[in-house]
Design a protein around this nucleic acid. Sequence first.
DNA 1: TTTATATGACAAGCACCCTTTACATGGAGA
DNA 2: TCTCCATGTAAAGGGTGCTTGTCATATAAA
Lengths: 66, 66
Amino acid sequence: MKNRLRELRGELGWSQQALADHLDVSRQTVNALETGKYDPSLPLAFKIGRLFELKIEEIFDDEPEA
Amino acid sequence: MKNRLRELRGELGWSQQALADHLDVSRQTVNALETGKYDPSLPLAFKIGRLFELKIEEIFDDEPEA
DNA sequence: TTTATATGACAAGCACCCTTTACATGGAGA
DNA sequence: TCTCCATGTAAAGGGTGCTTGTCATATAAA
């Protein structure tokens, strides 16, 4: 599933470590999400949505493009 | 995490099996979600949202109640 | 050059998501 | 009663989410 994590993190000028701290996950988890290794759990997706003040659907794209 | 699956399924008058078929998961998975055994994966949460035409946040409640 | 920060990646381990198979119960209807 | 459907639950197994620890590389600064 595609996501806008890297883009959103960039807007804040945060490092992966800083984002990880705010989400209470490891830096490796943030890195894995950004590089598309796997999708977050639903609770983590909620945390991400709250942090960026966006709906989950505005951050993650479940539909394979076109 | 709380969810409105049983309520939404009830509105359609569907059995757990019927909902499971529409979501491409097993009946046991639907039952586990409704009885709060575990949360769905993010892709399954997206499927559920699309099926009911609701945002994920309108179906699942991440916040422990007040 | 040396040091520090940022990122990418890998492995091992644990817990969770979802499966299939199976069994038990309750209600509706023949 | 007998049968069927709906629901709840359990166990075993595979795949995934997340952890800690570690290593490698690149960039920037002193």
